[in-house]
Nucleic acid binder design. Structure first.
Lengths: 346, 346
DNA sequence: CAGCCGGATTTTATCGTTCAACTCGGAGCG
DNA sequence: CGCTCCGAGTTGAACGATAAAATCCGGCTG
C-alpha cells in the first residue's frame, strides 16, 4: 500500500519536456533523446547523468511529438462491433483484449472505433491512416468475399486480418484458426473414447465458420471410417440454446442415435446438454458432448470444448502489422479442452 | 457498388499536407487552417477556392500535428478487462462500444489498454496523460472503496467514472445506473400484474451491484405493502445458470411459493426459467419472471428484463470528460423491457 | 487629405521530439 | 607533419499543424 512516491516533478508549469531534462543534466536535447532511444550511442557516464535527471524530473517523452517527427503513430485500430449474438460477442471481446495486450508488448496502442457497416468501417480505416492517427488497422472476422481488404489494398492502408479473404492464399497479413482441424480433433478424441456414432450440431449452410466446422466433422469421420452410416447425424440450426436443445433431442430420439455429439458452439452444446439431461441421461457417461469456443459457460457446465488460441492470434496479427518481415500468414490449430462431458469412462 | 472515386491525391510523394493545399489554392497555410476550423473567418470566395483544393487533393489534417500544437490529444482511454464472468463481460463490451460511439460524436477517439489490476491500471492512466497520448481516462465499474480515483485525483489526471466512489456524492465526473430503481420498477410492474408474493434471486452479500438491486427489492416490496410475509423470498447465490435454477427450484417448492420472481441477472433468470419449466409450469402464465441487463439471451428466451441505458451512460461520461461545464454527475434510471415471461395475463 | 478602423490574409513563432549534418579533439598512419 | 577517421556531442532544421501578431487595403470620418 505504498503511498505516492516522492514527486518533485511539478517544478515548472506544464509537463516536463526533454528540454528540462537536458538543462538539468547539462547536455543537449539530442543527447537526452539518444539516451532514451539509442543508449549505446552515449558514453556510460553521460548516460547515467541523464538517466538520473530523467528519473528525478519524472520525464516521459511526449508521444505525439515523437510520432509526428518520426511519422509512425505507434497505434493500430480495430472496429468494435455492436453486440448481437451471444457467443460471437464474447469472442470479439476476448480478441480485442488479446490485441490490446499484444500491441502493448510491441509498443503499439490500440484504438477502437465504431462503424455501422463494412463500408464505413473501411472508410474509417482509410481516414485514420491518412490522418496519421494509426499506422495500420486490424480487420476482425474476415470472410472470403469480404469487401474490406480490397478497399484497403487499393488505398495503400496497411492491415492484418483475423480470417481469410479470397486471394489470401498468396497474400500475407492474415491469421486464422483452423476450424476444421478443431472439430476433427474432437471427432478423433471421441473415436478414441470408443464412440462410433458421433453426431454434429452445426450452423445453417453458408456461414463460413459453420461450414469449416462441418467440413472438419465430415473429414474426420471419413478418416475414422465412421462416415458410412452417419450421414444423417449431421444436423443444422441457428446458434441458440433452444435450437441446440431441439437438434439434440431430434438426434437422440432416432433409432441408431449417436452416443456422442459435437456442437459448433458452446451455445448449441449447452442446449444439447439440457436435452440430454431431460432424457434422463447423464452427460459424459451416457452421451459424450463437446462444444466449441470454450466460453466461460463451458467451464461452469463442465463441458468439453475447443479453445481458439486468441492470444496467439493477437500476437501474430500485431506481428504481421508491425513486424520487420511482413511475411506473416498463419493457420493456427485450436486446442481441445477435455472436461467431464466427454471424459473417457474409466 | 461504386468504384473507388477518382483519386488524383497521389500527386506528391507522401500524404497531402496543409502546405500542398495552400499552394494549390494560392493562399497561405493559415488560411487553409482557418477554413477548416473557423470557416466564418474567411471570405466566401476564398473559402470556396480552398474547399475545392481540399476536395481535389483529398486533404485530411494530420491529427498528430494538430494535437501537438493545440495540446489536446483528442483521445480518451479505457481499460479493457479480461473476460471472466459471462454477464459482466457482455456489459463491458456494450459499454466500450457506447463509449467509442459517444466519443466519436464528440470528436474523441477511444484508446484501449490492458492492465493486470487496478493499481497498474491507474499507473497506466497517469502515464497516458503525462505522455500526452490521451486527454482523459474512463474508469469502468467503479466501487465505493475503489483505489483508482484517489490516484488519479492526486496525479491531476482528468477522469470520469461509470459507478460511484466514496466521496462521489459531492464530486462530479461520475455516471451510474440506479440499480435499486430498476428492481423497484420490476416489483411495481409485477404488483400491478396482480402478484403479491414476489421472490428475489440475488448475488451474495457484499457485491455492490448485487446489494443495490437487493435493496431495490426490499424498498419496493415495502412500498407495496408486500414485504411483511416475504422476508424469506429473498435468496442469494452466485451468478450462474445452475445457481439460478437451484434458487428458483428452492423457492417454488416451498409452501407459499412466490408467483413471480425477480432476478439480479439474466443468467440467474435463465436458470430460473428452466426450473419453472422443469416443474411443469408455464413462464408468464403460472410464474412471472424478470431478469436484469437485457442480454441477447433475454430476447431469445422471451424474458422480461431491465435494460441499462448504456449508450446514454457513454454519452454522459464523454460529456463529463470533454464537455464545457464539468458539472456532470448523473444517476440514470434503467428501463424495464416487458416480454412474454411477465406479461399481464389477458 | 490625413488618420483610423476593421475585415481578410499573411507572417512569424511554437508545440516536443527526432533526423541529418556538423564541430571538436585525439588517435592512427604514412 | 598532414591527413583521415572515429567517438561523443552539439546545432539547426524539420515533422504538420495552430496561436498570436503583423500587414494590407478599401472605406469612413473629421
Amino acid at each position: 500500500m505504498a503511498k505516492a512516491p516522492a514527486r518533485p516533478a511539478a517544478r515548472r508549469s506544464g509537463p516536463v519536456t526533454i528540454a528540462d531534462v537536458a538543462a538539468a543534466a547539462g547536455v543537449s536535447k539530442q543527447t537526452v533523446s539518444n539516451v532514451m532511444n539509442y543508449p549505446e550511442k552515449v558514453r556510460e557516464q553521460t548516460r547515467e547523468r541523464v538517466r538520473r535527471a530523467v528519473a528525478e524530473l519524472g520525464f516521459q517523452p511526449n508521444r505525439l511529438a515523437r510520432a509526428l517527427r518520426s511519422s509512425s503513430a505507434g497505434m493500430i485500430a480495430c472496429r468494435i462491433e455492436p453486440v448481437s449474438s451471444h457467443s460471437l460477442a464474447h469472442l470479439h471481446d476476448v480478441f480485442l483484449h488479446a490485441l490490446a495486450e499484444a500491441g502493448q508488448a510491441a509498443g503499439r496502442h490500440l484504438m477502437l472505433f465504431a462503424a455501422d457497416d463494412a463500408e464505413s468501417e473501411a472508410a474509417t480505416c482509410v481516414r485514420l491512416v491518412r490522418t496519421g492517427s494509426v499506422e495500420g488497422v486490424v480487420l476482425y472476422n474476415v470472410v472470403p468475399d469480404d469487401p474490406r481488404p480490397a478497399v484497403l489494398l487499393d488505398a495503400g492502408v496497411p492491415f492484418a486480418c483475423f480470417g481469410r479473404f479470397s486471394g489470401a492464399a498468396d497474400a500475407t497479413g492474415w491469421v486464422d484458426v483452423d476450424n476444421a482441424a478443431g472439430v476433427a480433433a474432437v471427432v478423433e478424441h471421441l473415436a478414441e473414447g470408443g464412440h462410433d456414432r458421433i453426431g454434429f450440431l452445426g450452423f445453417p449452410d453458408g456461414h463460413r465458420v459453420g461450414d469449416d466446422r462441418a467440413h472438419g466433422w465430415v473429414t474426420a469421420m471419413d478418416r475414422q471410417g465412421l462416415l458410412a452410416g452417419s450421414h444423417r447425424l449431421d444436423v443444422r440450426g441457428e446458434d441458440t440454446w433452444t435450437s441446440g436443445a431441439r437438434l439434440a433431442r431430434d438426434l437422440l430420439d432416432r433409432p441408431g442415435a449417436p452416443t456422442a455429439l459435437v456442437a459448433a458452439s458452446d451455445t448449441l452444446a449447452a442446449g444439447a446438454l439440457q436435452a440430454v439431461r431431460d432424457l434422463g441421461l447423464v452427460p459424459g457417461r451416457d452421451v459424450a458432448l463437446v462444444g466449441y469456443d470454450d466460453t466461460p459457460s463451458a467451464e461452469v457446465l463442465d463441458l468439453s470444448s475447443v479453445r481458439q488460441p486468441i492470444p496467439e492470434v493477437g500476437r501474430r496479427i500485431v506481428e504481421a502489422l508491425c513486424g520487420e518481415d511482413g511475411a506473416v500468414a498463419a493457420l493456427l490449430p485450436p486446442e481441445l479442452v477435455v472436461r467431464g462431458s466427454s471424459r473417457r469412462r474409466s
